[in-house]
């Protein structure tokens, strides 16, 4: 299953990606993060202790976590905000700690962590118009660090020509062929 989580505050990026992916008979589940009631991570530590593997905040993130935990690919789509993601998408990322594996491992000589289960492919799509090189580079850097710390695979894409169907189709195809 592919899970798409997009910040559709401006354009309906998530639906456009879903449309393309569904044409290939992939199983797709989509959330619009800006329409969900998701509270910020409270750093309570419960998900790595008392309620190991489960976040105790009772909001829409509970249904999102059920889907992400079992997916093979996660696609986060966000406008690029100061070289990162929007707060709607960042709230999702912060709350994903509960499906992470809190144990440590070593990769390329450094301590890293991992995700629970079979692992997933992790994609980030940054959107915008005339994004500066510094912002693009920061966005790609964030994804690189994310896959490193999560011991995941995947790629980041920057679509900087506004809402463009052709680019969306091309990116969705690239993700499918990864």
């Amino acid at each position: 299953m592919i899970v798409i989580i997009s910040d559709d505050s401006k354009d309906n990026w998530g639906a456009a990606f879903e449309e393309t992916l569904l044409q290939t008979e992939s199983e797709v589940f989509r959330f619009s993060s800006n329409k969900l009631d998701i509270k910020p991570c409270a750093a309570c530590g419960s998900c790595s202790g008392k309620t190991y593997g489960r976040c105790i905040i009772p909001d829409d993130m509970q249904q999102v976590l059920v889907k992400i935990a079992g997916c093979c690919s996660l696609i986060l789509i966000s406008p690029i905000v100061f070289g990162g993601v929007s707060h709607h998408i960042k709230k999702i990322m912060d709350r994903m700690a509960s499906i992470g594996d809190p144990r440590y491992r070593i990769n390329k000589g450094e301590i890293v962590k991992g995700m629970s289960g079979q692992g997933m492919n992790y994609y980030m799509v940054g959107t915008g118009n005339n994004i500066s090189e510094a912002e693009k580079s920061a966005f790609l850097y964030l994804h690189e660090e994310n896959i490193n710390i999560m011991s995941a695979k995947g790629r980041a894409f920057v679509l900087d020509k506004g809402f463009n169907r052709e680019l969306i189709n091309k990116t969705a195809q690239e993700i499918l062929h990864e």
Partner: peptide, 17 residues
């Protein structure tokens, strides 16, 4: 601020926005 998933937490991003 603390580092959550390689950068600042969502609430600070919201403040900056």
């Amino acid at each position: 601020g603390p580092c959550y998933i390689n950068t600042y937490p969502a609430r600070l991003v919201e403040l900056l926005e």
